[in-house]
Design a protein around this nucleic acid. Structure first.
Lengths: 91, 91
DNA sequence: AACAATACCGGTATTAGTATCACGGTCATG
DNA sequence: CATGACCGTGATACTAATACCGGTATTGTT
């Protein structure tokens, strides 16, 4: 076992992370936001649904820029949720 | 061609990114910082040397927390450096 | 010189992220 | 109803991130 599989906690964190992004996307379409961030819509979908629980840093950075989110707040929101075991909205 | 290989620009960005992290690490050892961030020292080394140019978001978040860095500033610093010639948006 | 700690490098194994292809649902058109 | 366009989704293909092992060089201590 050279690479540890993602833990359930990490997957849960990914789901919260995706939920935050989806919420921030609001009424905008996946295609539009994905294009603005330079990703494919499928990749954005996977991130939002938690099927890609640990996306690349620059992918997230591009998404955050397209959505007007702060990376620090995004990470903090997920970390907080992980500690409390509860989903806490940012802002 | 299902997944586009990393472009030279992305690799260069990874090198700048790693250099920033190494600078922020200062006198602390790789082992210590890696442990603080919950990574293996080899992974930290690869990130710092640019051999892992696009690390995972939460990996970077943990590193930034261990180093006392802001994710937004980190991303901004790399984006600034990327002004050299990176314009690959669709459209 | 021997020993220990740190950092660099190549190879290797395994999981995960990302892009393309193909399908179902909805709305507008004819 | 049939057709087409758009969105979201699942399956598939392929590259990259992460971790472990062994070896090497440098530095500091004894």
């Amino acid at each position: 076992m050279v690479r540890v599989p993602l833990t359930p906690e990490e997957r849960l964190r990914g789901e919260r992370f995706g939920a935050l992004l989806r919420q921030a996307r609001g009424e905008r379409s996946m295609v539009e936001v994905a294009a603005a961030a330079g990703l494919s819509a499928e990749t954005l979908r996977k991130i939002e649904t938690g099927r890609a629980p640990t996306p690349a840093f620059f992918t997230v950075a591009a998404l955050a820029a397209a959505l007007g989110l702060s990376l620090d707040e995004l990470a903090a929101a997920c970390a907080e949720g992980a500690q409390a075991g509860e989903f806490r909205q940012a802002g």
